[in-house]
């Protein structure tokens, strides 16, 4: 696989509805690795992701990026398959759309939705919809993937399954994942940064050992989780 580029933010000012979210912010996200941004609700995690994606006024995307939001954002009138190849459909190139078919099918099989290609999102469970959203994000085949609490509202077991799946499928890409769940950050992140304060300041890099997805029963992980929760409580 082509090595994915690093992503960096240099002296950025992020303003949302007149509130300064971040001032003179500089951050590095190493290429081909997953960086988890951890912070309490409202600290500005999503604003930072939107800044990286070029969705805030006056910003441009860092390059071609794929974006996965908190909600699945599947179009209710399109089948699962058509939702997954939505990007190709929207760029209006018939040839690219046809080429995207096999890729979309393969990805859907990989996330366990191979038998639901023609189903409408309405008929799927929350976990299945989020799997479809993950497949759609990957179908874009971008080296940089931005994820905003992608598994935030799933039940614990489904979330675990999807974390494993995501860790496998995102290997080798530059991923920035925002989460408020310390355990999720510890399972998936090669690097973890805690964002705290108003305007927020990123904490030092925390790099747990071991390959992702990490075993949640690992004592080192549990100790780190306790530390992260402590930092989040005092830093908020």
């Amino acid at each position: 696989m082509v090595s994915s580029p690093a992503l960096s933010v240099r002296s950025a000012h992020i303003v949302l509805d007149g509130h300064v979210v971040a001032e003179n912010l500089s951050l590095e996200f190493p290429g081909g690795r997953t960086t988890c941004l951890l912070g309490r609700s409202g600290v500005g995690k999503t604003s930072l992701l939107r800044h990286l994606a070029g969705l805030l006024p006056g910003t441009a995307p860092a390059g071609p990026v794929a974006y996965m939001a908190q909600r699945d954002l599947l179009l209710p009138w399109l089948s699962v398959l058509d939702n997954v190849r939505l990007g190709h459909r929207l760029r209006g190139d018939a040839a690219a759309r046809h080429a995207a078919g096999p890729r979309a099918r393969a990805l859907l099989a990989e996330v366990g939705l191979g038998h639901h290609l023609d189903a409408l999102p309405q008929t799927l469970s929350g976990g299945m919809r989020q799997r479809a959203a993950l497949a759609r994000t990957l179908c874009e085949d971008r080296q940089i993937v931005l994820m905003d609490e992608p598994f935030g509202h799933l039940d614990a077991v489904t979330r675990f399954d999807l974390q494993d799946l995501a860790a496998r499928l995102l290997r080798g890409r530059t991923v920035v994942m925002v989460t408020h769940d310390p355990l999720e950050a510890l399972r998936l992140g090669h690097e973890i940064r805690i964002l705290s304060g108003t305007p927020f300041v990123p904490g030092p890099v925390i790099a747990p050992s071991g390959a992702v997805p990490r075993d949640p029963a690992d004592p080192e992980l549990l100790a780190l989780q306790a530390r992260l929760i402590g930092e989040l409580r005092t830093g908020g």
Binding site: A53, L55, L73, L90, R91, E140
Partner: peptide, 13 residues
């Protein structure tokens, strides 16, 4: 949905 509009923008629609 604002988020869907963002998604469409990212997809270059």
């Amino acid at each position: 949905d604002r988020n869907l509009l963002d998604l469409f923008e990212l997809y270059g629609a």
